[in-house]
Amino acid sequence: MARFKKEGSKELPAISTSSMPDIIFLMLCFFMMTTSTREVTLKVRIKAPEATEVQKLEKKALVSYIYIGPPTQTKLGTESRIQLNDSFRTIGDIAEFIFTEREARNEVDRQMLTTSLKVDKEVKMGVVTDVKQELRNVGAFKINYSTRKRAPKSNG
């Protein structure tokens, strides 16, 4: 039969917390490595439209982005421009952009490549249609219209 031991003489030694900072630093490093921050500085203003039926885009590594919107620098006018990577481009550059995006992925993933169109809500469809036609021509069929989630109640 066990008895309560007398306190004092056989107290458990406190767990050493001296390695705690190291563990936390490891965690910090892990987070820093895994979270990928996108390195694109937007040169066009993008205020995405809102919709209720949005889906999450999975596998961020397999998404390439096309930005369309009016330039943020007002001296460049208000005409909608296309931004690929870090610079303004034209419709003709999209094919090449898609090819380089494909080259950067491995063979298996190329079919899964999605093009996400990040378009400002005030852009006219003309530019978007041109981009879509260009994407069709190069065979990038999977697209995503980037939209923000809106609460389903406020409709219209």
Binding site: T35, R38, A51, E53, V54, Q55, K56, L57, K60, V63, T114, S116, K132, L135, R136, N137, G139, A140, F141, K142, I143, N144, Y145, S146, T147, R148, K149
Partner: peptide, 14 residues
């Protein structure tokens, strides 16, 4: 962690 959301569509071939 800006998760991109949107409406997914499939374009028809030319």
């Amino acid at each position: 962690m800006d998760t991109d959301t949107g409406i997914v569509r499939r374009l028809p071939p030319p």
